[in-house]
Design a protein around this nucleic acid. Structure first.
Ligand SMILES: [Zn+2]
Ligand SMILES: [Zn+2]
Ligand SMILES: [Zn+2]
Ligand SMILES: [Zn+2]
Lengths: 145, 145
DNA sequence: TCACAATTGAAAATTGTTTTCAATTATAAA
DNA sequence: TTTATAATTGAAAACAATTTTCAATTGTGA
């Protein structure tokens, strides 16, 4: 249920953005991985096939994809460098393995009641939330190095 | 129900850390504010009374307080610079005003059921979560500039 | 009061990201 | 096809946030 590089390329076009070889290369890298990656990682993976691409272009492409909701950011438990990954359609969150970085997407977030309660209590107009779960995946648990 | 600068100072001592004037100055600043502040903001507020303190010391003190769970980080909705604020005792989260930065702490987070469900479904050993709510506070809503 | 490890601050180094700008290029119109 | 043009690119510089280094200072317990 995930978007392919070509589908995303089409969406870029539909939105009036040029489909450059660089953008396509980045899309391919992001679509090929099921894990989140830092801009730096995406940069070096893209360079394997496309050695002339610049890091700036990675940042710009990620910003663009983010503004179109085609990727999403993963916040790691420590520090908070923002990692990015392709996004399943619709509202969802991430369960991230602290050891290997594997990401499981999930939906059915149960914050509506909490948000209603807090709307009443605080009179805030609640517009969104950031939720990430952290843990250790089965693979990492079974092999205690 | 919040920790005072002096209480925190005691905790530092108990844990074998020296109680320097610089640390005490930082504690006073953090304890005096009910909002979250960037390291830079804490730096300049601390300098008002303590002009010779260095920014490095702010970072080091914040790291120390963080490792002792005496402050907590607030993740802003855009970018994700980590802001810090003193911490109410116990598990809690933040409701942050996107416009003025005001922070309301809340507890009673409703993630236990979700975590149980995901533990079964994914076999992850879930160890923690990051949750921040965003919205617009009453003050900012009433005065649409 | 002494001894010493912990702490400090200045400066440099590192890291991550953004801006600038001239050259290139994807696209659509002719 | 060519051509025109605005969008896009990459190198380099700028910027921002944080960390490291290291010699000098200082809190604390003996
Ligand atoms: Zn794992
Ligand atoms: Zn949600
Ligand atoms: Zn506000
Ligand atoms: Zn919680």
């Amino acid at each position: 249920m995930r978007l392919t590089a070509n589908k995303i390329a089409g969406i870029l076009r539909e939105n009036g953005y040029k489909l450059t070889p660089q953008r396509h290369a980045v899309l391919k890298v992001i679509a090929a991985s099921s894990d989140h990656m830092t801009p730096e990682t995406i940069y070096s993976k893209t360079r394997e096939e496309n050695p002339d691409i610049g890091l700036v272009t990675i940042y710009r492409t990620l910003d663009l994809l983010n503004s179109l909701n085609l990727v999403c950011r993963v916040h790691a438990p420590d520090g908070c460098r923002s990692y990015m990954m392709r996004r399943p359609v619709g509202h969802h969150h991430h369960l991230v393995c602290s050891q290997c970085g594997k990401v499981v997407d999930f939906d059915g977030c149960t914050l509506a009641d909490l948000e209603n309660r807090l709307t009443k209590e605080t009179k805030f107009d609640i517009t969104g939330h950031l939720l990430e779960l952290y843990g250790v995946c089965p693979d990492c648990r079974h092999v205690p190095e």
